[in-house]
Design a protein around this nucleic acid. Sequence first.
RNA 1: GGGCGGUUAGCUCAGCUGGUCAGAGCGCGCGCCUUACAAGCGCGAGGUCCCCGGUUCGAGCCCGGGACCGCCCACCA
Length: 835
Amino acid sequence: MKELQTSTRYDPADAEPRISRRWLDSGINHPDPEGSPAENFSIAVPPPNVTGALHMGHALNGSIQDALIRWHRMQGRRAKWVFGTDHAGIATQKQVENKLARDGVRKEDLGRERFVDEVWEWTREHGGIIQEQFKRLGASLDYEQERFTLDDGYAHAVLQVFVDLYEQGLIYRDHYMVNWDPGLGTAVSDLEVEEREVQDTLYSIRYSDDVVIATVRPETMLGDTAVAVHPDDDRYRHLIGTTVTLPIVGRELPVIADDYVKMDFGTGNLKITPGHDPNDFEIGRRHGLETVSVIGEDGRMTAEAGEAFAGMTALEAREAVVQALGDAVVATEPYTHNVPYSHRSGERIEPLISLQWFMAMDELARPAIDVVRRGEVKIHPPSQERRYVEWLENIRPWCISRQLWWGHQIPVWYRGEDEVHCGLEPPSGDGWERDPDVLDTWFSSALWPFATLGWPEDTPELRAFYPTDVLSTARDILFLWVARMVMMGLRFCDAVPFEHVNVHSVIQAPDGRRMSKSLGTGIDPLDLIDRYGADATRFGLLAMSSSQDVRFSEEKIQQGAQLANKLFNASRLILTHAAPQDSAAELAIEDRWILSRLERAKADAAERIATFDFSKLALGLYDFVFSELCDWYLEMVKPRLYDGDAAAQDTALRVLEETLALAHPVIPFVTEELWSMLPGERGLLAASRMPPGDPSRLDAQAEEILDRTIATIRALRNWRESVDAKPGLFVNARLDADGVPAALVGQLARFEWADGEPAATVPVPGGAVAVFATEGLDLGAAARKLAAERERLEKEIARAEGKLSNPGFVEKAPEPVVAAERAKLERLRAELEAL
RNA sequence: GGGCGGUUAGCUCAGCUGGUCAGAGCGCGCGCCUUACAAGCGCGAGGUCCCCGGUUCGAGCCCGGGACCGCCCACCA
């Protein structure tokens, strides 16, 4: 309250820590695990990397989810926003490897156990940062029940799922072509691979008189086991069934026919290397070809590549092979094409055959498609549904094993050649060795909505909060994560993990590039919070967001800061001049108007929450507060507030109170702060009920009258400009327009209603204002202005007349449209008349 | 190679199922320290709504074609 009197500015840096403390101490973030999922509201946060820091995506999605959580909490529901972090296998392991490397230590020097200890140590040191950052954002996550994908309970859930799926035959081990990341020394899934356009050299190599193949990777020819042509290719039909001799190696390669070969590309001869090309691998399987692996998991040529090349890197081998081929290389040309790169390490993917664990997806995918088709899981915006469904329809086995140390180690033990044990506990007996691989991080993430709530135990949390209500995320992990959660939720909990998926936009750098640390295009949300406050940051991000990708614009953040400040100053005005009134004093027209507008703002906000339209939610609040509440209502009601008018005080206070509540989910800090200054004893706004809609306040008559009043004031202000009226000057005039509250118009347009000799006329809705000679007015300019106005009216009248005299329009347009046009014409004529 | 989305004021973006839909914020210009707020208030200037056809009484809004931009998916060596 002191601040209200002494400062004209809201100071987020002062208020936020204080408010944050009150929220955290209040326990509102940790609802009791009671009631049913239907009556409760829950969201599982996309778990950030345990050692991660808050980036723009977190900040935006945090703002979205928190708006939802706060909104529904204020509807009186137990609202639980599950908090936790992800062990982020590759990312975290790499951080620690890098740290060790700075001390000249390799993880192999430590051994697995000590290395993993090191990583735990690292997560303890660097974990928890993002939690503090979420708190600064005002995110009302349930910090009291934080989960981690590697905590004991969670790890148990992960292994349970593995064992179950193994026993059901959906998880299996196989030699298969995988995306090998030579940088990380592990296989990665298809989703962790990105295509990049690169310049390579395309080599044409003569295998025989008839056969010339083209390749960008000559070193892989050492692993060729066939040459393929298209079955309809007349040029080579005669070769099918014969063999050619592989240069350098001397192996006889059968010439096979396969539809895959494009006749019109290159020579129409395709070398087949089943060991190092995904397509060739498939072709090899179709034709029962032998597989030769010439590149190893270390990225170096194997013994099978031959003595001359073994031990070389693939790149070295390429040159050596070209050298050895000599004249057999008949052409080289620059060649631009797409090449797979590891998303994680940025290294070029080496496709090779490896013994890995896979999850069969078809059986899991079908129900996950069905629930979306049936609307049991609703994706917003619906355009994303198609992507989701199409991806699942074309899903392939998921390579779930990773050659890392940090993560959930696969619960499978081997003894000898053919003894295998899969289980939660190690097998008894000697000589068993555990599979060294860990699971893909996304395997554990896929269980997030239920494993965080205690599954596989039948916990109160699970009963109260699963299925969750909303999952909010950016587009990029719709497949990686969302689809997999749906599959796992259905499989293990017999229920969808969430009803709604909100796919939000990606905020790009102001120049349209991707926001990324490495590009230097990142913007730190914490910096925004420091400079503008958490409310401003939240507001700005929500205002920017849409389903479409958008460029970051700091203006929107500033707009948020202005909104907070505006509310602060509106509160100063109201709270220093209004006390609660218990008399039911009669409301003035502007009181009825603002209450009616407030109802619409409430209905709009509810609608926008329900449709995940956060941009309009934020901007709608801004418009209501600035335009309707402050620019018009408070300006109108000010004198009555000063005079102690009961209806004015009561209305202003009530509107302020409800506006604070309405805005709270978007800008929680400033609203909580101001709420605490409202008269009377009241608890936290965050724990209060959202004022319910009150249809009895909707007042079409008041809105109609105020519409005209506002238009009249605007017309008069406009006219004042045209005659150079000094802002402080009261203009003497007579109001010749019915149904417009003269006092309000006079007050806001600075006109004094009197009698006198008209010297000028100002057209206003439904009539005119006759202006009397007043000193300080340039009426010559007024005349010019009037002429221009007359011209505008005449033009509009002509347009309306034209429309109405068009038989096509009158006959075919719907009746209300025609009637509206007629009414408009009449109004325009009346206004012209008044001039 | 498929699929999706975009192209509206100098900038960032709204414009629902075709009929005041040509808008907002910022920026810009002019004027105001009017006792809530000068990070404020008032007023204003700025747009062949990407292009070409079409449907319609009427089209940023629907249809066809084209141009550019972005994203996703994809096994042409």
